[in-house]
Design a protein around this nucleic acid. Structure first.
Length: 477
DNA sequence: ATGTTC
């Protein structure tokens, strides 16, 4: 696969064979060997072969092989000529990240860290197959999927500020819960407010470095501050919807003359009825995921309130922001000199809108949209801001995390749980894990260095760093 | 990622 270096951190696969547009990859020389060790570049070239793909297929520095589209991909499709692809969204629909601010400092929280950790570990269901504390009726589950965070607001488990600080205000209006299968709905009903497993986590971090004091202040962030990270998605519900619609859409591809590059590389024209149905069900799963992260937020607020014996708002536990990194949405871009609506797929990629963007609410319209970019449980995570450059080059998108550099299998063999826990303890990081063997797959060494992943994004002007945080306490499924 | 098997 020919990869041409066009600038320091921007590489291009020129269109060849049936590629309709180039593929662009943001990376560093150091990360380049990781990009070529699997099928990710070939998969990205396949994305560039799909009908109606515009400008370029974009690969991020955390890109690696996935089912169909690589994880770490952004691609936009023309509404008339283009396609929608469930494999361009991923199985965990609206997997995403949120950060809760606090007005607490590290020393204040360290004194009670064990108590908070024990409460959170007991009250936030985590692990594979974990069930929520409450099983909702079919009707209630459908209402939640239709209304997203508006539903949590009604239930007294969210405040208005939470909606303002969430991408799409936590609700895709196209959601149609009637398009969600009974099987998917039944899985979802038991999964409200659960963390899940794999790379999902709940973390208490401290802001260890401020890159931009003015922007940090505008976002309510300061050095030494305690913040909480939540990474989870739509659990079995989204997974079931993705599978259901791949099965429905696959047999229709031939009649539209769309090639099937691999089993899960399913796509149909945006206008096809099956595509529209997928988008309605996908939106329902996305809304469910926002509710899921909100219910966990509610538990976090309760835990802090209990330990500090003060209401959560007095402790400053407001939402910094919530971003989706597995989703497809209609967005406006300028392509070939004209502004139009496109269907943007982000799979393992985070939206990165700049200040002034009409989709942003409140303070974010002035400052820009926070990009929440988690690293690993030892080296920490970044908060950055979107830029005009990202809007012009990468469909307002950047990477979604450090990205794996080691397979799950290899990581499990390389890292024992106890040595990992001890290694973290030396850094004063407390680790809780439901499944120890599964946690081994998530060892820091299994991930790329988050600093290295952020470097090309900042270097090419797609994002501006605001703060870096480091973990004090980690909960894994 | 996922009732650990698409």
């Amino acid at each position: 696969m020919e990869l041409v270096r066009e600038s320091t951190y921007r590489y291009v696969i020129p269109p060849h064979e049936e590629m309709r547009v180039p593929a662009v990859v943001y990376t560093t020389e150091d990360l380049l060997p990781l990009l070529t060790k699997d099928e990710a570049l070939r998969q990205l070239a396949n994305v560039a072969r799909l009908p109606g793909v515009v400008r370029c297929a974009v690969g991020m520095p955390d890109m690696h092989q996935g089912y169909a589209f690589p994880i770490g991909t952004v691609a936009a499709f023309d509404i008339e000529e283009g396609v929608v692809s469930p494999g361009g969204v991923g199985f965990d629909i609206n997997c995403g990240v949120r950060v809760i601010r606090t007005s607490l400092t590290a020393p204040e929280v360290k004194r009670v860290l064990e108590e908070i950790g024990n409460i959170l570990f007991a009250t936030v269901p985590a692990g594979l197959g974990s069930r929520g504390l409450e099983k909702f009726s079919h009707k209630e589950a459908r209402r939640a999927m239709k209304k997203g965070l508006g539903w949590a607001l009604e239930k007294g488990m969210a405040v208005e500020e939470d909606l303002e600080a969430t991408e799409e205000e936590g609700c895709l209006r196209d959601a149609d819960p009637q398009l969600v299968s009974d099987e998917a709905l039944d899985r979802g009903r038991e999964e409200f407010g659960t963390l899940g497993s794999g790379n999902h986590f709940l973390e208490i971090d401290v802001v260890e470095k401020v890159f931009d004091p003015q922007k940090a202040k505008a976002l309510g962030l300061f050095e030494g501050q305690v913040v909480i990270w939540i990474h989870t998605g739509s659990r079995g519900l989204g997974h079931q919807i993705a599978m259901d619609y791949m099965e429905k859409m696959r047999p229709r591809m031939e009649s539209y003359g769309i090639p099937l590059f691999e089993r899960d590389f399913v796509s149909l024209p945006v206008k096809a009825p099956q595509s529209q149905a997928y988008l309605g069900a996908m939106a329902a799963a996305a809304n469910f995921a926002w509710v899921n992260r909100q219910l966990i937020t509610h538990r976090v607020r309760e835990a802090f309130s209990r330990v500090f014996r003060r209401p959560w708002d007095e402790l400053g536990l407001f939402l910094l922001y919530d971003v989706a990194h597995n989703i497809a949405k209609y967005e406006v871009y300028e392509v070939d000199g004209a502004e139009r609506m496109f269907l943007v797929h982000r799979k393992g990629a985070t939206r990165a809108f700049p200040a002034g963007h009409p989709a942003l609410r409140g303070i974010f319209r002035e400052v820009g949209q926070p990009i929440l970019l988690p690293g690993d449980m030892k080296r920490g995570s970044y908060v950055l801001l979107g830029t005009d450059r990202a809007l012009k080059e990468s469909f307002g998108s950047v990477a979604h995390g450090a990205g794996r550099q080691m397979s799950r299998h290899a990581a499990k063999k390389a890292f024992g749980f106890k040595e990992m826990q001890e290694d973290l303890a030396r850094e004063e990081i407390r680790l809780y894990a439901v499944d120890r063997r599964r946690a081994q797959e998530e060892a820091p060494g299994a991930y790329k260095d988050v600093d290295a992943v952020v470097k090309p994004l900042v270097g090419e002007g797609l994002a501006v760093p605001v703060v870096r945080t480091r973990p004090l306490l980690v909960i894994k499924g």
